[in-house]
Design a protein around this nucleic acid. Structure first.
Lengths: 185, 185
DNA sequence: GTATCCATGTAACCAGTTACATGATTGC
DNA sequence: GCAATCATGTAACTGGTTACATGGATAC
């Protein structure tokens, strides 16, 4: 059990912030984790079911009138324990990276320099966009903090992940340029 | 067809360098792609079989005496075409990242600052190791080039991927330190 | 004589994605 | 009346991993 299923911990971690439905989890993940994590309904719902079987979460049906029925999950004591165990593991299996950008550059010789350059320029555009996205989100957060209307547990850590996003997009963008320069030589 | 199967292109690209057996492909990948790509036998062999069915590679049995029988694959004309098409695609589906390091930091509030710091120090060690590995490989290559005994198609591109590896490991190491500093404040 | 490498392969499994079905509510 | 959002779920599939089986060759 619990070998490699990270979705499990992502869900546990999110529910630790506050009790949520499967739908909420997806929304929350899309908004706050999307730079480095993704989840989809087709996986969230079955995993929630399994987590309940394992006794790591409990569900409660919320039947408000005039609103679709929601099933709200909360972490149990055992759930917190499981999350804690995972969080404090010394080691972490380094993810088996599969980076298509790198793979394509590695095979760069199989196409013309112009074609490779064209592709890399396109990629640079992608990262330019991503960078401005990060900046705008960071701006929105600065506002959020000053207004301090929304409670956000651990926003400091969240900001660090944003900073990482910024750095990585910049690195990739710059690297594309380096490859372009190398081709030109 | 050809939706998302990157292994296909990894194999095609490697065979484009030179005809190889499934075993060779794995070895070659482990040596040259491992920083950003991974393959395993359980996938290579079936994909090779499928590629042959699609007419993108051909196989030839090599039966030397005193040596285990090898099946050597080469790319066909159609295989080169398929590789070329993929290489010149303007767009690239950005990989659905799932970065456990980031996820754990995001949930940093759920454990004590000391525990988090301890974990991040361990991670820094991991990246320090990876960095020295990159450096040593780069050194070995410098030697290889001056000796120029081994033929390596597109070593310039290869060197760029190594540089990327170096940069990314450094970034991650430094980022861990930044998070540690943030916790201390 | 044993450990390691060469070499190929399959079966079972798992994580995750896509597509689809359903239906209520809200806002224009 | 229509689109968008809220909300839950399942079935089929795919990409990839792990474990296992087999067996010869080489190096110590």
């Amino acid at each position: 059990m619990a070998k490699n299923n990270k979705t499990k911990y992502a869900i546990l971690g999110l529910l630790h912030f506050k009790p949520m439905s499967g739908y909420d989890i997806k929304k929350y993940a899309d908004r706050s984790l999307s730079f480095f994590w993704s989840e989809n309904f087709g996986h969230i719902y079955p995993v929630l079911k399994q987590l309940e079987l394992e006794g790591l979460v409990t569900s409660r049906k919320e039947s408000t009138d005039h609103k679709p029925q929601r099933i709200v999950f909360s972490v149990t004591e055992n759930g917190v324990k499981a999350l804690h165990e995972w969080m404090t593991l010394d080691t972490m299996d380094y993810p088996t990276v599969r980076d298509e950008l790198l793979l394509r550059v590695f095979f760069g010789e199989t196409v013309s320099g112009d074609q490779m350059t064209h592709f890399l320029e396109k990629q640079k555009e992608v990262y330019t966009e991503k960078l401005s996205m990060v900046k705008s989100v960071e701006g929105a957060v600065a506002k959020m903090i000053t207004d301090s209307e929304i409670e956000f547990p651990g926003f400091k850590f969240w900001r660090m992940t944003m900073e990482y996003g910024h750095d990585i997009f910049e690195l990739r963008k710059n690297w594309c340029q380096k490859v372009i320069d190398m081709i030109k030589e």
